[in-house]
Design a protein around this nucleic acid. Structure first.
Lengths: 133, 133
DNA sequence: GTCTTGCTCAACCACACGGTTGAGTAAACG
DNA sequence: CGTTTACTCAACCGTGTGGTTGAGCAAGAC
């Protein structure tokens, strides 16, 4: 679990950089060499190589060997890991809204104690600490 | 475009930290105050406050006011932005695989010279497709 | 062999990040 | 009023990140 936690951190961290995100976008269209990836940008080849290392350590990319070239390949499966994480909490939040709406409806229909809308979730407490991912 | 680029960087950057990801997970279950969020962790309240600022600037979270308390609320819509970004390139990569597969099938049916099979994308290609296939 | 190409590794530098402590602020409580 | 609660802001500090240049290495070209 902690292992995947670290993996997610690497993945999100890797995609936090616009240049790296750009590279991922480019690689989605097809494999490319380091030089080709570096070409559109105003940075050194070494910098691009570093970025690729970050992407590789995050498991987003794989580097192979072809003579003196280093073709880079996008590892698309990693996206699933992110999507799963996101959807989990997105769904949880949505369900909470639905419960909140239902509660508000019921209160309006029956009683009208007072208008403080917050605190309706059983107050801010940690009734449900299902954290960790 | 650039504006959203920056936004995505902030979002991914915010989620690159396991503690912040944990907070998001907690907030998906319901709003909480800073103190409540800080409680489970072994860091100072100031550190947690800083983390919340990062999440806020990424648009993942909103802080309001309730007396001296600062209830934190998860802004779930942001997930859509991420999901869109991910799915876009995920889909693009998958389509590429399908095209590649189709090409390889056609070649096996006709000829078997595995010379320059690649280049279906116009980029430098190497025809190794190991993982997600 | 030597040269060139395509890349990585190493060292360095400025700056951002995550943590700390200490001080300050806003609202409730006595 | 002063105290307590709940927090933010400011300053500092070690470490990580993104950039640079310079050196080195593997493989094809000559």
């Amino acid at each position: 679990m902690v292992e995947q936690d670290d993996r997610l951190s690497r993945i999100f961290g890797a995609l936090a950089d616009p240049l790296r995100r750009d590279m991922v976008a480019r690689l989605a269209a097809g494999d490319a060499t380091v030089g080709e990836l570096a070409a559109p940008y105003d940075v050194s080849l070494q910098a691009v190589s570093k970025h690729l290392k970050v992407l590789e350590e995050a498991g987003l990319v794989r580097r192979s060997r072809d003579a003196q070239r280093r073709p880079v390949h996008l590892e698309a499966e990693v996206f699933d890991l992110m999507t799963k994480w996101i959807q989990r909490y997105q769904q949880q939040a949505e369900e909470r809204y639905q419960r909140l709406d239902a509660l508000l409806d019921r209160m309006q229909g029956r009683d009208d104690t007072h208008g403080t809308t917050d605190d309706t979730t059983g107050q801010t407490a940690d009734r449900q600490r299902g954290a960790a991912g």
